[in-house]
Simulated scan of single mutants.
Amino acid sequence: MATITKTQAGTYRVLIRKSRFGVPQLIKTFTRKVDAEAWARKIEGEIERGAWRDVGGADRMTLAEALKKYQTTETPKHRGAKVEGYHIKALKEEALAKTVLDRVTRGNVRSLCDRWIEQGYAVATINRRLTILHAVFECARVDWHMTGLSNPAEALKLKGATERERRVSSAEITALCDSSDSPWLPAAVRIAVETAMRRGELSKLRWSMVDLDACVTKLPGQITKAGKTRGVPLSPESIKVLRELLPAKKSKDEVAETSLLGGIQPHSITQAFGRAVKRSRAQYLADCAKSGVIPAPDFLADLTFHDLRHEACSRLAKIFSLHELMKIVGHTSPAMLLRYYHPDPEDFAMRLRDVAMVAASSMTSEVMP
């Protein structure tokens, strides 16, 4: 039987000893005696049925507290710490965040997902939040010694996340660069579409990582998403852009640790790109109205800086094989690379036509005397 004693503070302390069941001594304090008795009956019943789990404090820590602890101890280790922080902030504002970890169920999480869908959140955004929830519960279970805690976000991901297939035309790139108010964005855009480097990699690129004579950039693991060193070949166009950026009247040693893009931060690239898209689209619409031309609905519309990486992968795929391209762009699986490769059907048709023409020419030469 559980022992219930009244403390000097007027609360009720419950002590449960069930060592013969392999259960450690359990202690919990309640404001009301009726709650203490109810908890004692519940726990003793679970122990005797073999259903009790050692949640190690998960019945006292709320989801909001767990998210805060996770953000303090784990998030700083992640490359996408800033973006992850935004999602954690949103999760902490949910009503479910006030629930203790042990009471958060799979049904609760599913209901949360349904509400996010009704509110118009993208599937990709919801899946990112589910990934964070899964990581928080795993961290609590493994690192915070809440071994009996179940993970309500286990294997819970929404299907139907749309994969972007947006190609960026040369005309759009020119318009964006011409309308940008940033001294660094035009160079960032041109290098990105030629090399498939990520926004974060470009912002951290130093001249010491670039070999213009060998036409290659060596990205150290500290700045790549996968944490692995990667060599990126430089096209003649990217070499031209880099030579224009090269500081004048400075020695090689002075230039070595200088940022290529003047120390611009990743979020600043995104903001400058967004301004350039709006400005160039507005100019395009004005030019169309002036000349009486019907504007194309997708020209300079719905563009993100990351679309440049998609475009670069599709262009480089015409030159390099699958495994070579994976090494260049830093993808660890062919499946991931295929999400970035968006070929034009017209290119396939042209290749088929060329093959047919070669075959026809060969047959003609065979029948000639």
Rank of each mutant, 00 (worst) to 15 (best):
V55N: 09
A64Y: 07
E74K: 03
Y70P: 01
E84W: 10
W52R: 00
Q71H: 12
V55F: 03
H87V: 07
L67F: 02
W52D: 13
R60L: 06
A90H: 04
V55M: 02
A81T: 05
K68C: 08
K68H: 11
A95G: 10
K82W: 15
T73F: 06
E65Q: 14
T72L: 05
V55Q: 04
E94W: 09
L91F: 10
Y86S: 07
A58P: 13
H78R: 15
T75E: 07
E93P: 01
Y86V: 10
Y70Q: 01
H78F: 10
A66E: 05
R60T: 13
A95K: 15
K69Q: 10
G57V: 07
G56R: 13
K89P: 04
G80Q: 04
P76E: 00
K89Q: 14
I88A: 01
E84L: 10
Q71K: 05
M61T: 11
V55L: 10
T73C: 01
P76C: 05
T75L: 03
E94V: 07
E84F: 10
G85L: 06
D59H: 01
A95F: 15
K89T: 13
D54P: 07
R53D: 03
G57L: 12
A51I: 06
V55K: 00
T62N: 13
A90F: 08
T72C: 03
Y86N: 06
A90Y: 09
D54W: 04
T75W: 03
K77Y: 08
K89C: 09
E74P: 02
G85A: 10
L91D: 11
A95N: 04
K77W: 11
Q71T: 01
T62D: 06
K68R: 09
Y70W: 03
D54R: 04
E93N: 13
P76K: 00
G57N: 12
K77D: 04
A66W: 14
E94Q: 12
G80P: 06
E93W: 06
V83N: 11
L91S: 11
K89D: 15
L91I: 14
A81V: 04
R79V: 06
E74M: 06
T72E: 03
A64M: 03
G80R: 08
K68Y: 04
H78A: 09
M61N: 00
G85C: 12
R60N: 03
A51S: 08
K82L: 15
R60M: 11
Y70G: 00
A64S: 14
H78M: 15
E84S: 09
G80E: 14
T62Q: 08
A66R: 12
Y70N: 01
L63R: 08
R79M: 03
K92D: 05
A95P: 13
K69R: 14
L91T: 01
K89I: 11
A81K: 11
P76A: 03
T73D: 11
Q71E: 14
L63W: 08
A58K: 12
K77A: 10
K82F: 15
V55S: 05
K92Q: 13
E74N: 02
T72S: 09
A51P: 06
P76T: 00
V83L: 14
L67A: 02
I88D: 11
G85Y: 03
